[in-house]
Design a protein around this nucleic acid. Structure first.
Lengths: 369, 369
DNA sequence: GTGAAAGCGCTAACAT
DNA sequence: ATGTTAGCGCTTTCAC
């Protein structure tokens, strides 16, 4: 499918020079040498000052003679000087970079985090290193350690890795903020979601509408959020007479939800609780194909409130979690940790139920079991 | 909405030690000191070898006596030694990091790029620095330059910045790969989309179905893809007798498309060509609310094929562009540039029309203008 | 095979 | 206010 457009691309450099001392420049054009060539020493030399002075000027120290400063700036400009951030990082002992590890960059959940974190950190001049663990726990550990070494702090979204593993790693990764999960009995700073509360809201809504036969479209077995949500579901069902719950193994993606649509109608539930919005989408699409009306025949709920949830037909009732906000707060926590603070109190965000149009009263005649 | 969960978070370090020489360790527990403390010198000292040897061992040089190597590794482990990647970068003159600048991290288009790039680069041990310019051209320039200085190469998605600007910057940013646009008359390596071809496919499809009255939901005025697509549209309409085209200023987001739904029906077109999928989504949603049937009353097309496009109701007919693939290829180009190659030929990806269910024959009686 | 020494480019006391 | 000096932690000739 990719097509060459037939336009040749020429080398940016006309020839590879042999003179190590004098960098190649376009013939006949007097001007700065190639970027990245100049060092602080050359600038100092050119301006007739010491490197310390150049450093001061470049960092806006107010204690420099304006005249000198001007000379330095001129020299810097002439030489097209760009301070090396790597050298600076080494000298300073910090990189002004933080790292984020997520299991899946295709997941809107993590995209939201990424965005919030990037913006919050960016506002104070911190850059973001991003890596995707592709749901691979081994990979994740390696990545996390490496990413952390390149940066001043780490935000780790790790729904799969075991508690022990994370606990064992926490020293090497600090300052570290954990996302979407807490480690029981640990002091690891974390930002998580109160899954049980979200499920409770969904269940209240559904049962309030009159639904009694429910089905859960389960997420990946290894996923902590899935385990939390399922446990909450079971607890509620166990505590509420007259409720029945079917659990359908499903997954976390569109296609998983889509594939399970048939089973959903087969189990004759009136309310379906999807592990997340993507699964709900898939299910919605599959149900539509089967001619099942939502919410006429079946009510459907998601979880997460990803951006597209309000644009499905019908718009999806879901438990909303503040993705960007979590990114921002992750930055705040990390920042305070980086400043030697304790990291403050752990936070558990309470999902908010957004009632849209994918839920309604069950069809008459099926209200009670 | 955020709620504190009431669990205090204690400091990871019990107290701040006063002994600069001997790092604090948890009382009574013999073990490695805090991570990040050990340097190559300490390891060398502990193992009774030179730093050079430690370096060799850490980098897997085969020319080290196995016995020595073992001693070094033991010492490194004991001291919980983690080589400083920053120091390494300085010594080596490369960071093993590349940077990506996108206008909007919330845009699925760029999320796809990000993902493809991250994976391709990650496969050979390169990490990704990500920054979002938030559609701000000034900001973008600053970001790009800075990001480039922290990395070994840059991938820049810049649909807004002017050609001149980009051309002027190209020296400072090299090795640089430009995304989603080409700079006319320049040798800048770029990966772009053949917007005209995509529009042509869409138009063929629509006119083949019998549509004659068309409306274009225009993207942002400053966006290069929008200009390309609009120009292609106009050219086709101008060259095809019997076709009429209305242009509705719109935007690039859901809400823009949603807001314009009313005007779409007002202009009595039978075929609507949205700037991109998000706009198409918004329009779809708005039309649905107005009781307009798609494709019964109106046919609707998008552009990009974002992940959700196949899950809308009805699924969206759209011109697909290979987002992940572009990310991968961006890495390939960058990699070759970083190796001093010329960067090869520029590539223009041909969109592929995906005919789904949002398009059909126009309602009878409206077929011809 | 191993070590000594000279950088990589910058910052930060400290001295003047 | 400016320069001198000593690092930051690693790699890499170049001798041995």
């Amino acid at each position: 499918m990719p097509e060459h457009a037939g336009r040749a691309d020429m080398s940016a450099r006309d020839h590879s020079g042999d003179e190590p001392e004098r960098p190649v420049r376009p013939a006949g054009k007097r001007g700065p040498r190639p970027y990245g060539t100049a060092t602080i020493s050359r600038v100092a030399e050119a301006a007739g000052v010491s490197r310390a002075t150049v450093s001061r000027v470049m960092n806006g120290s107010p204690t420099v003679n304006p005249e000198l400063a001007a000379r330095v700036r001129a020299a810097a400009k002439e030489l097209a000087y760009e301070p090396s951030l790597v050298a600076r990082s080494l000298a300073l002992g910090r990189t002004s970079t933080i790292a984020l590890i997520v299991p899946d960059l295709a997941n809107p959940l993590f995209q939201g985090i990424l965005r919030g974190l990037s913006q919050a950190a960016g506002q104070v001049g911190r850059r973001l290193l991003v890596a995707e663990s592709r749901e691979d726990t081994e990979e994740e550990v390696i990545l996390a350690v490496e990413a952390r070494r390149r940066s001043d702090g780490l935000v780790l979204a790790s729904p799969r890795a075991s508690d022990e593993r994370l606990r064992a790693l926490s020293d090497r990764l600090a300052p570290l903020v954990l996302l979407y999960r807490e480690i029981p009995g640990s002091t690891l700073p974390s930002l998580s979601i109160d899954n049980a509360a979200g499920i409770a809201e969904i269940m209240d809504h559904l049962t309030g509408l009159g639904h009694r036969r429910l089905v859960y479209l389960a997420g990946p077995e290894a996923s902590a959020p899935n385990r939390d949500r399922r446990a909450a579901l079971r607890a509620i069902v166990a505590a509420t007479p007259g409720l029945t719950l079917t659990e359908l193994p499903c997954g976390a993606m569109f296609d998983d939800g889509h594939a399970v649509a048939r089973q959903v109608v087969a189990c004759r539930a009136t309310g379906v609780i999807a592990f997340n919005d993507m699964v709900a989408f898939g299910a919605l699409s599959g149900l539509h194909e089967l001619g099942v009306a939502v919410p006429g025949d079946l009510s459907l709920t998601g979880f997460d409130d990803i951006p597209f949830a309000r644009y499905t037909t019908p718009p999806l009732t879901t438990a909303s979690i503040p993705k960007n906000e979590m990114g921002r707060q992750a930055w705040n926590r990390l920042w305070s940790l980086m400043n030697g603070d304790t990291g403050g109190h752990n936070v558990r965000f309470q999902p908010r139920l957004l009632v849209r149009e994918s839920t309604g009263r069950p069809p008459t005649g099926r209200t009670s079991s």
